[in-house]
Design a protein around this nucleic acid. Structure first.
Lengths: 183, 183
DNA sequence: GCTTCATGTCATCATCCGAAGACATCATGT
DNA sequence: ACATGATGTCTTCGGATGATGACATGAAGC
């Protein structure tokens, strides 16, 4: 068995990354402090500067690891939509979702978030719409993703009671009924 | 003609309120500072404390004045939806919209925002759905408003190019095509 | 004119934050 | 064992922010 080393930079790095993902997910970038991140990770926050360069770079790192990473989800597939909403409901909306509605101050950071958002959500939808021969596929895709993100974020915000309390299956069913293009 | 008094608390109050509405709309509550508000209003920021009690209370005051105040908009009426999206595109999403996706830290403030959101957007839709005999009218209404807000906020964030650049009429038409309940 | 209160200006405080660096401690190679 | 670099801990700095109160100034009543 591998002896648990008392000092392990890789492990510290990952602990910080995981804690940062949690906090950025729960409260967003601005309201998360590197002290909180360090506390949750059980790692001194000064190491954030050493291993990532700073809070902004740590945020960029979390974007790369965000759980959407799996095969590109197609929002119009009920199982995928449900999985995404479930994930958001249980662990909060991902940093990428937040970036869609409240842009980051640093343009570089915002651009990175936008790139992830497109690659993982918009582009797959756009391809689907193109395949289906719908007009304005890009606009349709962005509109759909924006609406989906609005629902996902609103569900976590506590502002909409019925939306937050409804079972995910019901939300997905209703949303797809509304969002699915007319045949 | 009324002599413009060099000292006029009512005027100072309104200048602060107007400037605060602008800034909260542009950058949200957290990223707006009372110094910026005072600067834009041409009024000393210390007067915020005197006339409103503090930054949070000033925010509450802006919620009451938010431009949605006019007759309850029905999102499914194209003219109303276009007006709301146009307004958001030109002057930024209102503070109420932001509150739906990123809850305020202070529960009291958040509750006030939620109340406005329901009174002005959710409730009218819910009544409409009820009249039309649709099931789950409350859930439908919240879902629709959440989606609409996602679109509105995303349009202003610069994350979605096609969505931001498309003419408002086209966005509304496409959104209504997607959102309108099946007949 | 003088008083008195409303209104406005300014300086300062306490707090929080991200960043940086000094210093301590452990691991590893020789 | 020792030297050296990696890793971790702690303190401190500079800046920003909201709040507060002391003080100044104008307005209104007498």
């Amino acid at each position: 068995m591998s002896t648990p080393r008392r000092r392990d930079s890789a492990r510290s790095r990952e602990l910080l990354l995981a804690a940062a993902t949690e906090l950025f997910t729960e409260r967003g970038f601005d309201r998360s402090t590197i002290r909180e991140i360090g506390e949750r990770a059980g790692v001194d926050p000064a190491l954030i500067a050493r291993y990532f360069g700073g809070k902004a770079q740590l945020y960029l790192a979390t974007l790369q690891v965000d759980q959407l990473a799996a095969n590109p989800p197609d929002l119009l597939e009920p199982e995928r939509a449900k999985a995404l909403l479930d994930h958001a409901a249980q662990r909060g909306p991902g940093p990428i979702h937040r970036a869609a509605v409240s842009p980051h101050e640093d343009p570089e950071v915002q651009a990175a978030a936008a790139e992830q958002l497109h690659r993982r959500l918009v582009d797959p939808l756009c391809e689907r719409f193109t395949r289906e021969g719908l007009d304005r596929p890009q606009l349709r895709a962005e509109l759909t993703v924006a609406a989906f993100i609005g629902v996902s974020l609103s569900r976590s915000s506590g502002t909409f009671q019925a939306l937050a309390q409804a079972r995910t299956e019901d939300v997905v069913a209703l949303a797809l009924e509304l969002l699915a293009p007319r045949r």
